[in-house]
């Protein structure tokens, strides 16, 4: 273990804000990308399903129940 304590770990030898600022923003961006991806999947699935039901509902018996 190269750190004396968790305090020293978060401190990062005085450059804590820079190191954690980098890692924090990277994490936020990755999480944001994943959320946006999920939102897009859900919304476009919903939209396409709605379009499908409006236009060609008869062709898709599975959808009728939902």
């Amino acid at each position: 273990m190269i750190w004396d304590s968790w305090g020293a770990f978060w401190e990062m030898g005085g450059s804590g804000p820079f190191v954690w600022g980098s890692y924090g923003v990277t994490t936020v961006l990755i999480v944001a990308e994943l959320i946006m991806l999920r939102t897009r999947r859900v919304s476009s699935t919903r939209k396409l399903n709605r379009l499908m039901r409006a236009g060609h509902g008869r062709k898709l018996p599975e959808v009728q129940g939902s």
Partner: peptide, 16 residues
């Protein structure tokens, strides 16, 4: 590919 038949099936599955 929203107009393809397989996509309709997949969409129905995802919708459920």
């Amino acid at each position: 590919e929203r107009h393809a038949d397989w996509v309709r099936g997949e969409l129905a599955r995802l919708g459920e």
